[in-house]
Design a protein around this nucleic acid. Structure first.
Lengths: 129, 129
DNA sequence: CGGGATCCTTCTGGATACTG
DNA sequence: CAGTATCCAGAAGGATCCCG
């Protein structure tokens, strides 16, 4: 149905790293993006969320489930299978997230500059006045 | 110039308490809202941010300054006076914040229902199946 | 008034090992 | 496979005292 998730979906160079806008906990926003195009399995989610431990992923998923943003479905098959999917409420967050992403991409340079300027206070002009 | 900030500006009943969307750290979003209509003094900010300690407010303000979202101006008068103000970059965040607030207000009921449903798993129907 | 310094508690995220 | 149980480190937030 939906293609595999790219392992480098959340690169280090991603502007979201600098964005002050956060959705839920550290991983929630990324998880929601992963579910954007359809349900995903637990182990499928671990791929783009590189290095996340099972415990932390479980925690984050439970939080999202608690807030009604995703639903969890366990299939009783030979090999255990669990799928997570966005609820309508969760899907309604995609709008605000797109706004946040657009903001971050748009102001990415300014954010970088601001940090750099803040960390180099000695450059001829100071706060004196 | 601008009217005093209402002490109950951030009520406990505020939908933002349930919203998964966060701007910066715990206080950053509220600080930005406080600066929306013009510069504010340190002690002025402490009023709506009820119970915040000086240290934490300072920390949060420094973080916002570091990210280029606000500017700090110290006036060398008899009584010490420091004002914080939104930069253009900081002001550009008001759009995404309005989107976030609209989302939270719109889905406030759903969020409440989801939490309640999650905390009362025993109600006849379960996840069985 | 607007902080800084210090100490303390809580929360978040993670490493590791184990399980149905 | 999809977790749970334990233990642990670091960061965030806060209380308290002090200062120019």
């Amino acid at each position: 149905m939906n293609e595999p998730l790219a392992p480098d979906m959340f690169d280090e160079l991603c502007p979201s790293a600098l964005s002050p806008i956060r959705f839920g906990d550290k991983w929630a926003g990324m998880i929601i993006r992963c579910l954007e195009h359809g349900p995903r399995r637990f182990s499928e989610l671990r791929i783009p969320l590189r290095g996340i431990t099972a415990k932390v992923l479980t925690q984050s998923l439970r939080g999202l489930e608690r807030d009604g943003l995703i639903s969890r479905t366990a299939y009783d098959e030979a090999v255990q299978r669990v799928e997570y999917e966005l609820t309508p409420l969760g899907r309604s967050l995609l709008g605000p997230m797109a706004v946040a992403c657009a903001w971050a991409e748009r102001h990415w340079e300014e954010l970088l500059d601001a940090r750099e300027a803040y960390e180099t206070p000695a450059s001829g002009f100071g706060r004196a006045g």
